[in-house]
Design a binder for these strands. Structure first.
Length: 118
RNA sequence: CGAGCCGACCGGGCGGCCGCGUCGGGACGUAUUGCGGGUCCCGCCGAGGAAAGUCCGGGCUCCACAGGGCAGGGUGGUUGCCAACAGCAACCCGGGGUGACCCGCGGGACAGUGCCACAGAAAACAGACCGCCGGCGAAGGCCGGUAAGGGUGAAACGGUGGUGUAAGGGACCACCAGCGCCGCGAGUGAUCGCGGCGGCUCGGUAAACCCCACCCGGAGCAAGGUCGAGAAGGUCGCGUCCGGUCUCCGGACGCGGCUGCGCAGGCGUUCGAGGGCUGCCCGCCCGAGCCUGCGGGUGGACCGCUGGAGCCUGCCGGUGACGGCAGGCCGAGAUGGAUGGCCGCCCCCGGCGCACCCGCGCCGGGACAGAACCCGGCUUACAGGUCGACUCGUCCG
């Protein structure tokens, strides 16, 4: 589970990452990444919209994604904002599939962030 | 044993590793102290029978509230239960079932208005398409009588038999069905039973308007409140985008209205500006502030927040819903939103393979669904399972 110190809580933070960050889609996930935020740790946020399913399904996807993200915290540079959006196909994906999609999308988004900064 | 019917209950279990939230305790550490916050450790607890739909009823909060009338909304057999209800119980009536039992948006259609498709001559009270009878005519036919017969329809001038008649008709008679009135009896009552009388016969629809009886202020915890900050913000509406627990609501940006703040100007204080009675009118009340123009800027923390019409057990009253008494128990409180993630074993179901059988192995599946202020109901969804009462049929004694 994700420690509360890493959670994104303000609507403004979400808007900043979605608007200015780099985007990368892999499988059933879209990862937004933005550098230069304050703090010594990464900031993580999840978006699981109603199109994914009913409340039980959305909650299950959220919990699985949180667990997968917690296992990958060490790979994220400090001060990075990450927002993961789940697409409707995520409703039927297992944790293994979600983890694989994250492993594919996270480096892509982070690399594109580096490109944009140049 | 088979079939059925009603009610109550459960709705995966055990373990390992890694985690999250509230509360309690402890350690470290910031700080002059205190308040408060941070990190770590330990302990307790941590989704549902529907948490769902948001359809009713309450508690709670804010706003409003002299009184009367109109409009609007809701309910609808009776008697009870309940804080209340559109809920529940028992009973009544009507319908279904051999039965246990089930079903019913159950006031009024002589207060009035409207509607009744298609078919049919005719659909609600007047009328005769065929037929029947009488009269006239050479005849086609015309005039009159007639609801017994035909055909249509969900429904057609009560039904059967007789008297009577030109033919017929409650025109008359007997019985039956239905309606109304009266009396007696039973019941708190809805209603039921019995007897008599009447005219002889009147359709349905009120989930059409309507009438009758009774009840009803509005918005909702993102209600509302406290503190902080500060040149004070608050609130409402619209548009675009994003989001949530998505009929509702939040966030970002933009525009506009009202009020507040700062500045400027004007009007007014019993000669009364301006308001209120959350739909309208009568009527009544408050009343010292109000109007116009210009201007800048903010959105954090906490309370509400969970101990209550609470749950369990026993006894008593009641046919029952339920009530009373005694003892015991504390069982979630998040806020980008905790209550979990991964794995193993067991249980149930299905398929395949092996096997004489007992079984064994592999694969797949195990529902509906996630608290958001709290209760009482209703409705809807749901894999599988447990227990009990009762009914019908068959067999045995």
């Amino acid at each position: 589970m994700l420690s509360p110190a890493y959670r994104m809580r303000r609507s403004g933070e979400f808007a900043a990452v979605l608007r200015w960050g780099a985007r990368s889609r892999r499988g059933c996930l879209v990862v937004h990444a933005r550098s230069g935020l304050t703090g010594s740790q990464p900031h993580l946020g999840l978006i699981v919209a109603r199109s994914v399913g009913n409340s039980v399904t959305r909650h299950r996807v959220t919990r699985r994604l949180r667990a997968q993200l917690a296992a990958r915290l060490a790979a994220l540079p400090p001060g990075t904002g990450i927002v993961v959006r789940a697409l409707p196909e995520a409703a039927t994906a297992s944790s293994a599939v979600l983890g694989a999609d994250l492993d594919a999308a996270l480096p892509a988004a982070l690399g594109r962030r580096a490109d944009r900064r140049r």
